[in-house]
Amino acid sequence: MFIFESALQTLKKYAEFNGRASRQEFWCFFAFVIIANALAGFVGAIFGMRGALPGLVAALLFIPQLAVAVRRLHDVGKSGRELVVPCVMLFLSGLVLGFRGILPQIVALGFLGITLLAFANLVTLFMKKGSTVPNRYGAAPTAFSFAR
Rank of each mutant, 00 (worst) to 15 (best):
E16V: 15
I63N: 00
K13C: 02
A21D: 07
A118Y: 04
F144W: 10
F144D: 14
F30S: 13
A21T: 06
V43Q: 08
L60S: 02
L11N: 06
F146S: 13
Y137S: 04
H74D: 07
A15V: 12
I106K: 09
K78H: 12
L90R: 07
G113H: 09
T124Q: 01
P64M: 08
Y14R: 09
V70I: 15
G138A: 11
G94F: 15
H74L: 03
M49A: 15
A52P: 00
E5T: 13
V85I: 15
A143C: 05
S131A: 12
V107M: 07
Q24M: 10
Y14H: 08
K78F: 05
V43Y: 07
R71G: 01
V68A: 00
L73E: 05
G48F: 01
T132V: 08
V70C: 02
F47C: 05
M1F: 08
P134Y: 05
A118I: 11
R23M: 02
N37S: 14
V107H: 03
G77P: 08
R100M: 02
Q105K: 13
Q24H: 04
A67K: 12
F144S: 07
M127H: 00
R136N: 08
L97T: 12
G44Y: 06
Q105A: 14
V76S: 05
P86A: 10
A139S: 10
L92V: 15
G130R: 12
T142W: 01
K129Q: 15
N121I: 09
F2N: 09
P54I: 10
V84R: 06
S22V: 13
L90N: 07
T132K: 09
M89T: 13
T115G: 04
K13D: 08
M1A: 12
A140G: 08
V33K: 01
A67Q: 08
L97M: 14
F30D: 04
A45K: 12
L39S: 15
S79T: 15
S93T: 14
L53P: 07
R100E: 14
A147E: 12
G77E: 05
N135E: 08
F29D: 03
Y14I: 13
F47P: 02
K12S: 14
G80R: 06
M49H: 08
F4E: 02
F32H: 01
I35F: 06
L11R: 11
Q65P: 00
G41Y: 04
Q105R: 14
R71V: 06
V96P: 00
L90C: 05
I106V: 15
A38S: 14
E82L: 11
A140I: 11
S93G: 05
S131H: 12
A59Q: 08
